[in-house]
Every structure is written in C-alpha cells, then in structure tokens.
Amino acid sequence: MRLVLFCHSLRSDWNHGNAHFLRGICTELLARGHELRVYEPADAWSVSNLVSEHGEQPLADFAAAYPRLRSTLYRLDAGQPGNAPVLDLHQALDGADLVLVHEWNDHELVRRIGDHRRDHPGLRVLFHDTHHRSSTEPASMAAYDLRHYDGVLAFGGVIRDLYQRHGWARQAWTWHEAADTRVFGPRPGEPREGDLVWIGNWGDEERTAELHEFLLEPVHALGLSARVHGVRYPEHARRSLRAAGITYAGWLPNYEAPRVFARHAVTVHVPRRPYVQALPGIPTIRMFEALACGIPLVSAPWNDAEGLFEPGADYLVARNGAQMQRHLRELLNEPGMARELAAHGRRTILARHSCAHRVDELMAIHAAIAPAAPRTPPLRREPSETPTP
C-alpha cells in the first residue's frame, strides 16, 4: 500500500509527544513493506525550539536512531520564508492509497487535502486527532474543513464521540496511542543512578498542583534520589524541584527514555487536568512507553474508562499524595513486588498496545473504507465455445 503522512514533525519530539507514536507507526509500516512518504513543514515550531536550545546535533542523532524515517520539508505557499520547496500537493499525493493528516497541521493544508480527495474518488484520507482541543477548544477544531475526509482517527472514545456529536466528520474511529516496542523495552545491565525518574513537560500550568502533590512532595518526604526530564519548566518550577531535592535534567530525546528508565527503580504518571476531567480513558503515550520498558509505575488518578489496562496489576493507583508515598515506599522496599508489577504491565503492552497492534487496526479501517475493486465483466464466449446442452 502507498501511504502519505502529513504531520508537524517526525524529526523533533521537543514538547511534541505526537512524534513518539508517529515514529512507531511509520517504522511498523515500513517494516511491513508499505511505501510511505512523510511531509512536515520546514518551519515546524518543535524543530525550531529544539535547534534553538541544542543546535543541529539532535536532528543528526534522530536520523542515526531512525535511519529509515525521512521527511520531505515544504512551505505551504511561496510567501513563507525559507528555502524549502512549495508543496505540490498533486505530486505528493500521486498514486497514494491512504493519507493520514495529523491535527497539528495548518487549516489551509487540511482543506486542500480534502479538496484533492473530493476530486480523486479512489483516494482515502483520514484526520488524526491526538489532543484535548476538541474538548477544550472546540471552535478551533470545528474550523478544520473535513467535509471530504473519509473519517477521523481519534485517540480516545470521548474524542471520537465529540466528532460524531458535532458532525465534524462523516465517521470516526478510536485509535489509541501505543508504544513502539522496537525501541521501548527493558535494558538489563544498566547501572542504577537513582530511585525515581519522571519524564514529562511542565506545560501550561495544567497539572502544577498535581505535580506538587504526586511527585515533588512524595519525593521530598521519602528523601528519594530523583530526576526529572522535560521542557518548558519556568523558573518557579525549577525552584520547586530544587527545594524537593529533585535534579532537573532538561530535554531528553524520547528514544533515550528506555536507558533512563533502566537506571531508575520506579516512575510515576501524572496526567494533565483536561485529560482527567474531560477526557476519561486517555492516558498519555508516556504511560504506554514506561510500561513497555518494564519499570514499575504509580499513577495519579485517572479514569481508565476504556479498559486499556488493569489498575493494581499493570500499575498502582495513588488517590492522593499520602498513597503515592506509601506505594513508592513499598515498591522500593519490596523488589519482588516491583518486578511482578513491571512484568505484568509489560505483558499488557505486548498483548494489546504496541504500534504493531495499531497498524493492524489501521489496516482494518482502511479495508472497511477502501474503494470497491472494479468488477471484471464476464468473458464473452464465442459461438464455438458455447457448451453443448
């Protein structure tokens, strides 16, 4: 099959968690022998911020870590600055069977792809939504022109239902994120560097109180050796980390997370408030990745409304800061319990939540909406070939 992906960026995961899942999906598609073309804007803000902070080396490191993943950079129109070619959409989509358009794309590009789909009935186009904006910023999502799209891939049932309820798309499917198990797995033999690690961004003050209750305060109370990786930590956040005795280690290339997990005994999951309050059933991809790496995990409360995991067996749930302290103490002091929890969580990922599972789901969705194969007319028999009664 020939597939085309339009995304914000594969090259950079700086404050761009969508790159994690898309890298895994692209890798799986290529491994299965599909033809894949990826397009990303030359002025992607994630890349710009990454290069501004760390230079060009992370882009070279990404290319070395994912040698088969390459993107075509483009400008949407000639008025945009830069040297990248202006996107020739007809050329980009020529011969494609399926196009995936991630939601972090310009509204104008989304419309143009839809118009192309209208004029090419053999093409199938799906919009991919992996953010809470459909709930928290509905006007922004309603502005996407999806009239000619075949449907929406939503990373949770509540997002799928919003598209259907508002009539934003003709149909929608739930397509959860997942772990790229080619990259995310245990790394035995790594030296121990600390008790706890958390990999996540501070963000837009969407979970400040939760981070204090479920991360900073328990670490400080237990006197743990802890490290935090992530971006967009304002000075007040860094002061709070220092006061709790936590080392702030900055941005971490996502493909390096397995090594960092392997060097710590436990991790935590602290979901953002919009996901807890408005989007039940949707964990962040970092939870899938941590469980895939076989590290014991304790989560702040969230409603696993879609039954993705088995709370208490795949991970422990802390209803408040006191429970978080208790769970962390137990896991650090009872290695057998920690190993059992980690092994159960990893088995669940391997059984249901790998990028290979999601590609299977994508192929099934495409099969359901694919153009009908042309009917071959029956052969016309010559008179001499007419069977004798």
Rank of each mutant, 00 (worst) to 15 (best):
V231H: 02
I282R: 13
V86E: 10
R227Y: 01
E306H: 10
M1D: 08
R170T: 12
G114A: 03
M141C: 12
A318H: 00
H166S: 05
D161S: 07
M287S: 01
L216P: 10
E205A: 15
L87A: 15
H90K: 14
A154H: 10
G157Y: 02
S48W: 00
R207V: 01
R380T: 15
V38L: 02
R352N: 14
E53T: 08
P41D: 10
E108Y: 10
P81I: 03
N320K: 13
E190Q: 14
M363I: 05
W251G: 09
G17A: 06
P191V: 13
T181R: 01
G312C: 12
P274Y: 04
V317T: 06
H357N: 13
Q171K: 05
A370F: 00
P301Y: 02
D314E: 06
I159H: 13
S140D: 14
A364E: 11
A278E: 15
D13F: 00
G345R: 04
E190H: 05
E28R: 06
P335Y: 05
T27L: 07
G17L: 06
G185E: 06
F127H: 13
P335N: 09
R117H: 03
Y39Q: 01
M1K: 14
N105S: 14
E177D: 12
R238N: 03
A305S: 14
F21E: 00
G307K: 04
H236V: 09
T174S: 06
D360S: 09
Y248F: 02
E103I: 10
S354K: 08
H220G: 04
L162H: 13
L341Q: 12
D115V: 14
S354M: 07
N254H: 07
H148G: 10
R319F: 00
H107V: 15
P188H: 09
R346G: 04
F6C: 09
N303K: 10
P81E: 11
T247C: 02
R358D: 09
R192Q: 12
G312Q: 07
P218K: 01
G312D: 11
T247E: 15
A338G: 05
R263N: 02
R352S: 15
A226K: 02
P234H: 14
M363V: 07
P218Q: 01
E206F: 12
V158G: 00
